[in-house]
C-alpha cells in the first residue's frame, strides 16, 4: 500500500504554506502528524500532488490559556494536551476525550487540528469541539482569516467548511469559569482505541444546591458529523440532573440523531447506544462535580 507520487514541501512559515495552497488548491494538502492522512494516502483514498508539511512551524504548535479559554495552534500534539496539568483544568473535556483517542503512538504524532480537519464522524475531538462550541480559525492567502463555529464546521463525513485554499490556523476553545464544573466522555468500541461505535460528551455546571446552571451535551458516531444539542441542554437548566431526567434528555438526543449502520453496529443498536452513553456521561459528570460546601 504505497501512496501515489507527490511533491513534498516543508513550509518555512505560515504564509509559505498558504501560498502553496493558493497556487495548487485542491491538489495540495497540509500535513501535520499524518496519523489520519498517511493511511488514507497509503490506501490511495487521498492523493494530493503536493504535501506541505506545517508540523514544524513553532507558532502553530503552541497554545495560550486566557481568561475566556484556550487559543490553540492546530499542530498541537494530542499527547502534549493530554499530559499538561493546566489543560486538565482549562479543558477537562478535551483531556478526557483524549484518553479514548487511538494509542500512545498515534497521540505522540497526532495533532488536535489534524483530527478536526479529518472530520471522521466517530472521532472524539470533533465532538468535543461541537459540544464546547469552539471556534475554528481558517486562513488563506487571498482571503485572510475566517472564523467558523465548530457546529458549522463539520459538514459531513470527512467534509469540513475548509475551502481548498484554506488552512486551519487556530482553534479557540471556550473554558468554563467558576466552581461546580465537571465533564464526562463516554465511548463504546469493541477494542480500546478504536473509532467509537457511539460516543457521548457532556459538560455541566452545578450550583451549591446541585442545580444545573450550565450544560452542554453531544453525541459522536451518530450521524455523518458530531452532534451538539444546545436546546436540549437548556432543558437541564434549573433542575437536578437525576437518572430519569438524564435518560429522557439522552433518549431525545439519540432520537434526533441519524445513526448509520455498518458491520459493527446497526442503526437501532447504535441509537440505543448513544442514549445509554449520554445518560451515563451526564450521571457521571454529576458525581464528579467537586463537593459543595454546606
Amino acid at each position: 500500500m504505497k501512496a501515489a507520487p507527490f511533491t513534498f514541501i516543508r513550509a518555512e512559515h505560515l504564509q509559505h504554506a498558504l501560498g502553496l495552497l493558493a497556487a495548487h488548491g485542491g491538489d495540495c494538502k497540509p500535513i501535520a502528524g499524518g496519523q489520519s492522512l498517511v493511511p488514507m494516502m497509503a490506501m490511495r483514498l487521498a492523493r494530493p500532488s503536493v504535501l506541505v508539511d506545517i508540523n514544524r512551524l513553532p507558532a502553530l504548535k503552541t497554545w495560550q490559556i486566557g481568561c475566556r479559554g484556550v487559543r490553540m495552534g492546530p499542530t498541537t500534539r494530542q499527547r502534549d494536551v493530554a499530559s499538561d496539568r493546566q489543560m486538565h483544568s482549562a479543558l477537562p473535556l478535551l483531556v478526557a476525550a483524549l484518553q479514548w483517542v487511538g494509542h500512545v503512538q498515534t497521540r505522540n504524532r497526532g495533532t488536535v487540528g489534524g483530527s478536526l480537519v479529518h472530520a471522521d464522524p466517530a472521532a472524539e475531538q470533533p465532538l468535543v469541539a461541537c459540544v464546547l462550541d469552539a471556534t475554528l480559525v481558517l486562513e488563506s492567502a487571498a482571503g485572510g482569516e475566517r472564523r467558523v463555529a465548530a457546529r458549522d464546521f463539520f459538514l459531513g463525513s470527512m467534509v469540513t467548511a475548509t475551502t481548498e485554499t484554506e488552512c486551519l490556523t487556530a482553534i479557540e476553545w471556550p473554558a468554563w469559569d467558576g466552581p461546580g464544573v465537571a465533564c464526562a466522555f463516554e465511548e463504546l468500541s469493541i477494542r480500546h482505541g478504536d473509532f467509537a461505535m457511539a460516543a457521548a460528551a457532556c459538560q455541566i455546571q452545578l450550583d451549591e444546591a446541585g442545580i444545573c446552571r450550565r450544560a452542554a451535551i453531544g453525541l459522536g458516531g451518530m450521524s455523518d458529523r458530531p452532534l451538539a444539542f444546545p436546546d436540549l441542554a437548556v432543558s437541564l437548566l434549573g433542575r437536578r440532573i437525576e437518572p430519569g431526567l438524564a435518560r429522557d434528555v439522552a433518549e431525545t438526543a439519540a432520537e434526533r440523531s441519524e445513526p448509520g449502520s455498518d458491520i459493527h453496529a446497526d442503526t437501532a443498536y447504535r441509537r440505543q447506544l448513544g442514549a445509554v452513553l449520554l445518560r451515563r456521561a451526564l450521571l457521571r459528570a454529576v458525581r464528579l462535580v467537586p463537593a459543595m460546601a454546606g
Partner: peptide, 10 residues
C-alpha cells in the same frame, strides 16, 4: 511512533 504513518521526508 508508527513508522508506516510517517513519510521519511517528514
Amino acid at each position: 511512533v508508527r513508522a508506516c504513518c510517517l513519510f521519511a521526508a517528514q
